[in-house]
Design a protein around this nucleic acid. Structure first.
Length: 211
DNA sequence: GGATGATCATAT
DNA sequence: ATATGATCATCC
């Protein structure tokens, strides 16, 4: 958190320079650049392994793109959705829960009118879900897993879920992974990811502002 | 303008 | 192909 306080207010150019990382013109071809650069700055170690970024602390780092009004402008990717072998899978033993149990939200200016190099990092928010929030997340999660187990994955749209949603998560729409079909057979389907809706992260930002 | 579905880069 | 980091691009 001392490092987090140190970088609050700094822009992306100076932070990238401090760790000798080149900054791209824009994010069009490097959509994850901001998140990965800030992982390095703060010393996150999980890499692309399915576990919280700060493994020993059990804390997940999430950058939050902030629009000109001060609110999140995009959804937040959480992790891959298990589409096969879902028996015995519940919120309590899920990767979603492990990652969201403790999150360091790091707001970053994302207004397209601001050049990437000049976008500033805000003050990080160390956050844990309240029991009410967690039970709603658990409801969303368990409903999704139920449908996947019943072979309804192809019918799930981003409209479902109060806080969580499921959307495609792949290099492109031709990538396929193993899933469960309507008759319980193995099928090939598009990989999906769990995402947090912007309305969810907006509440976190709002509470921090008022608190 | 916001949300959904699609996509980009990289490491293993 | 699977995982991470996400934003882009199109549609309503």
């Amino acid at each position: 958190m001392q490092r987090v306080e140190m970088i609050a207010g700094m822009d992306l150019a100076s932070l990238a320079r401090s760790i000798q990382v080149d900054i791209p013109e824009n994010l069009r071809r490097e959509k994850g650049w901001v998140g990965q650069m800030l992982e390095k700055v703060l010393g996150a170690t999980a890499g692309n392994k399915p576990e919280p970024d700060f493994v020993d602390l059990g804390i997940e780092l999430k950058t939050l793109p902030i629009d000109s009004r001060g609110f999140p402008s995009e959804s937040t990717y959480v992790c891959v959705v298990p589409l096969a072998h879902t028996v015995g899978l519940h919120w309590n033993n899920s990767l979603v829960r492990a990652k969201l149990n403790h999150v360091l939200w790091l707001p970053v200016e994302a207004d397209k009118n601001i050049p990437l190099a000049k976008r500033r990092v805000g003050m990080g928010i160390l956050w844990q879900p309240t029991s009410e929030i967690e039970s709603k997340l658990a409801c969303d999660y368990d409903e999704f897993i139920d449908r996947i187990t019943l072979g309804e994955v192809e019918a799930i749209t981003a409209h479902q879920g109060e806080f969580l949603q499921i959307r495609p998560k792949a290099a492109n729409s031709s990538v396929l992974t193993a899933g469960i079909g309507a008759e319980g057979q193995s099928i090939r389907t598009l990989p999906r990811g769990f995402y947090l809706r912007p309305s969810f992260t907006r509440q976190i930002i709002s509470q921090w502002k008022s608190g």
